[in-house]
Amino acid sequence: MYDIRFTVNGQPEHATVPATMTLLDLLRDRLALTGTKEGCGIGECGACTVLLDGKPITSCLMLAVEADGHDIETIEGEAVGGGLSVLQQAFIDTGAIQCGFCTPGMIMSARGLLNRTPDPSDENIVEAIAGNLCRCTGYEAIIAAVRLAADRLAGAKQGRGQS
């Protein structure tokens, strides 16, 4: 068993975990953060995507012990101050959701992209979500959602700059 310390959505956490436990199981089974989904268990579908120090990773392929000393962000941390984030609202506005099972991972991949590339091209967006499988939407509305969120965030920033 290993003692690990890390943060999840800004909250300090401490856990004692076996060497074989995945980060996904730690989040879902120990911390009850079931917004992160398991779609394949072998890193092929992206449903389990979370951010590790701001970058998207597939939590089913990472061992819990590897999270020691790192900052984890999950879908549960995306909404801010009781309201939805710009990204979440954009997913709703473009109709980017159907069954919703891929949505948390998709939003986390998009969040990772916007963290590093605030004004992404469509190619950047496609690249960022290419590892997230969605069987319902056909991706068009998801790509539009990320574009819309980037535009709105840029607009808000520009608005602040002018004032």
Binding site: T34, G35, T36, E38, I75, L84, F91, I92, G95, I97
Partner: peptide, 21 residues
Amino acid sequence: KPIARADAVDKVTGAAQYTHD
């Protein structure tokens, strides 16, 4: 009318509970 999904908030926040959960 293009009304947004009734389940949208549950699904974008990770609050939607599936049998898996």
